[in-house]
Design a protein around this nucleic acid. Structure first.
Lengths: 141, 141
DNA sequence: ATGTATGCAAAACATTTGCACCTGG
DNA sequence: CCAGGTGCAAATGTTTTGCATACAT
């Protein structure tokens, strides 16, 4: 139940928040922009302001329910925080996003930060490439 | 000579382009926003439009002279492309940017992309943390 | 000369904010 | 009931674009 998740993080359970959270949990695309969320809800007949979407997403992020990513040359996308940390690889042609986790890289990052005199608090790693012809659903062509 | 660099990449040698390129090569900060570049040139008495700065930066990037980075919670910064590839670590308190290169991570990325069926073309890795009290020049304090 | 670059102002975007009204606990 | 949430519209900050003029080759 999404209501639970909201209550657990101390947010009032309101219709817009439930709809947004539910969409993030059920949508095919795991990474969505505020605009996309707004549009999909609107198409579903919901009356929700774009500003409300932005506000809800900001709160969800602060509460740790979702994560914000800024892939190159695109808008900010949001992703439901399910389970363990992972990084992303994005297809430059079709925009598909795959996730991965690599312990070697994770460990290495911590060592590097330490060596440079930093206390590591976060990181963003995104690979860009082209996925194989079989899986690529490029828009052009 | 900066004129050479421009000619080499097929760009007309104009005053604005020379000034911008020169600033990027000589400025203390290696990572600058378009706005910063514009302001510093203006303060130096140059009459250059902000739009021209954006246009020049876009062309320099296309030509491979500079690189564009989008660190979290900040504007886009540009950096002169000098020598070998590297990634960044950013201090969340004072905004300082350090660079690093790690062969282990680089190799690993390629393997991961391959395993997932992608042809790796680029990547963005940025670490976030807090630099040690000795070096941190946090604004608030 | 002549095609490209520039400066300015206006447009385009993504995101945020002010405010009167609505709603959940 | 009442603090907090919402929708709308206006404001913001950044980047892009249209256009007449200026410049490099």
């Amino acid at each position: 139940m999404e209501s639970e998740e909201l209550r657990n993080v101390g947010l009032k359970v309101t219709t817009p928040r439930l709809k947004i959270l539910s969409l993030l949990e059920n949508a095919k695309a795991k990474h969505m922009t505020a605009e996309t969320i707004y549009r999909q809800l609107s198409e579903g007949g919901e009356v929700i302001g774009l500003a409300t979407v932005y506000r809800a997403l900001a709160q969800f992020e602060a509460a740790g329910l979702i994560t914000r990513h800024q892939f190159e040359g695109g808008q900010t996308v949001f992703e439901l925080e399910r389970g363990p940390h992972h990084d992303h690889i994005v297809c430059a042609r079709c925009g598909r996003v795959e996730e991965f986790y690599d312990k070697v890289i994770e460990d290495r990052q911590r060592e590097i930060a330490e060596k440079l005199g930093f206390t590591l608090s976060d990181h963003a790693l995104t690979l860009y490439g082209e996925c194989s012809n079989g899986t690529c659903t490029a828009k052009n062509g």
